[in-house]
Design a protein around this nucleic acid. Structure first.
Ligand SMILES: NC(=O)c1ccc[n+]([C@@H]2O[C@H](COP(=O)([O-])OP(=O)(O)OC[C@H]3O[C@@H](n4cnc5c(N)ncnc54)[C@H](O)[C@@H]3O)[C@@H](O)[C@H]2O)c1
Ligand SMILES: NC(=O)c1ccc[n+]([C@@H]2O[C@H](COP(=O)([O-])OP(=O)(O)OC[C@H]3O[C@@H](n4cnc5c(N)ncnc54)[C@H](O)[C@@H]3O)[C@@H](O)[C@H]2O)c1
Lengths: 216, 216
DNA sequence: CGAAGTCTGTGAAAAATATCACAAAGTATC
DNA sequence: GATACTTTGTGATATTTTTCACAGACTTCG
């Protein structure tokens, strides 16, 4: 295991590998080679081995990786052996879709509180979550040991909400609003930006067949 | 203007710049420097200039960029001067949130048809869109000149739906399902993967304060 | 109009990331 | 247990992307 810095893209791919082998484990497959795993994730075999190499040696020369073992190791590395409590801010169209989504639970990521600024939405129930006023964020963060947050409010509100979140002591934000958030050192933001993704696709559509198919 | 290949990340950032200066244009600001634009997007000034440099010279030495001119140029480069028709497949929680979202329209990206496999959902109306059976995808693609598609169906269905989409003649897919799609050469897929984004955040939360804050 | 200051555009350098390629270590077969 | 395969782990290499740094172009202001 090397002691070098780990690229963020590696972390991102490790989750992909874990997802894949979790499926394979379900259908009782026992081992997989780096090239097989690389194919299934549309990445190369060398990429797979290098990514895993940052964290140790998991394979058996000549045979590949034991799915059960690799699964356990990846879960450990990626923090899947712990539970993470998430606060959702903004219970509009997107927020309610997120609340309805069961996929997070399976992944030990759990939305345990939801907040909104709109008085009409306070008190609404989604499953066992009741929508709370944003003023209670700080209190609930402590009570429920919340470490992750999701911003699903209109773009104009997002910066203000981010500041409230940080003040409450949460240092990780998943931002769905199409704005570049400004946060202090130490706070980690990831952006999910549908519009931009769709726009990028439209760029490709516009540039089909002019020798730039791949932009390369 | 160079003739070199343009990195995809550059394209992605250009949309960010365009978004920013569109806001500035609204409040009647006339010019902006690369360093100002770099600050606002949390990117460096050199990054801004290099990105723009792939497509030509837009600035005025000593003064910066004319917002009106740059806006027009970026819109041209990025295909915003055309309209793009989008098909949505899957009208569950996420799909309906997308249908309700008005942000795409503003961007000349327009969901013009929605499809589902569930008989109970066929015929439902969202604004002026009526949900259609997936069997009509090919016909409507031709009729409505659809070039972009969004997959918002369960993971297990996504590969099959992708194949149907491609058969219908659509070559650009925005995929929300957490699976690695397999598509033929020439088809462009972009993935939006909330769960993974949240998972990556949890990895950071897990590794706070152990000298790996930034992974670097 | 000239001097001082600002800001672009872009090669060159650095850093980050991906790919190659192969020795070493295993497995499978007979 | 020797031979023929297979597949890992990892330096070395290649590629991609970002950052630096500065000459030259333009602006502003007195
Ligand atoms: N819905 C989509 O498909 C979609 C697509 C792309 C981007 N987005 C982005 O996601 C975000 C949410 O979108 P949406 O469609 O759910 O919007 P929405 O208008 O349906 O919901 C926004 C919610 O945020 C709440 N809110 C507003 N200000 C708040 C504040 N200061 N504190 C707490 N809550 C507040 C509102 O009361 C509302 O419930 C937006 O930034 C939007 O641009 C959404
Ligand atoms: N909702 C979320 O917050 C969220 C978060 C992360 C990922 N996702 C992913 O987004 C996708 C959609 O999520 P959702 O919450 O909207 O699911 P959902 O179950 O609410 O909706 C899925 C819809 O797809 C339709 N469908 C199923 N098979 C189909 C087929 N073959 N052709 C056409 N339509 C079909 C169903 O009838 C249903 O209407 C899933 O892959 C999910 O993993 C959703």
């Amino acid at each position: 295991m090397s002691n070098k810095k780990v690229p963020e893209s590696t972390i991102s791919r490790l989750f992909l590998y874990l997802r894949e082998i979790t499926e394979l484990a379900k259908i009782n497959i026992k081992t997989i080679s780096s090239s097989e795993l690389g194919d299934r994730t549309n990445l190369g075999d060398a990429q797979v081995r290098k990514d895993l190499g940052y964290f140790g040696q998991f394979g058996v020369t000549g045979a590949g990786y034991s799915i059960a073992d690799l699964k356990k190791s990846l879960e450990k590395i990626l923090g899947k052996d712990k539970k993470w409590n998430v606060a959702l801010i903004g219970t509009g169209h997107l927020g309610t879709a997120l609340l309805a989504y069961s996929g997070f639970g399976r992944h030990e990521l759990d939305i345990v509180a939801a907040f909104d600024a709109d008085a009409k939405k306070i008190g609404k129930k989604f499953g066992d979550i009741t929508v709370r006023p944003i003023s209670e964020l700080e209190k609930l963060t402590k009570e429920k040991n919340i470490t992750l947050s999701i911003i699903a409010v209109p773009a104009a509100e997002a910066q203000g909400v981010a500041e409230t979140i940080i003040k409450a002591g949460i240092e990780c934000i998943l931002n769905f609003a199409p704005v570049s958030l400004n946060v202090p050192e130490g706070v980690k933001v990831r952006n999910v930006d549908f519009s931009r993704e769709l726009e990028i696709l439209s760029y490709f559509a516009a540039n089909k067949g002019n020798g730039r198919e791949t932009l390369k």
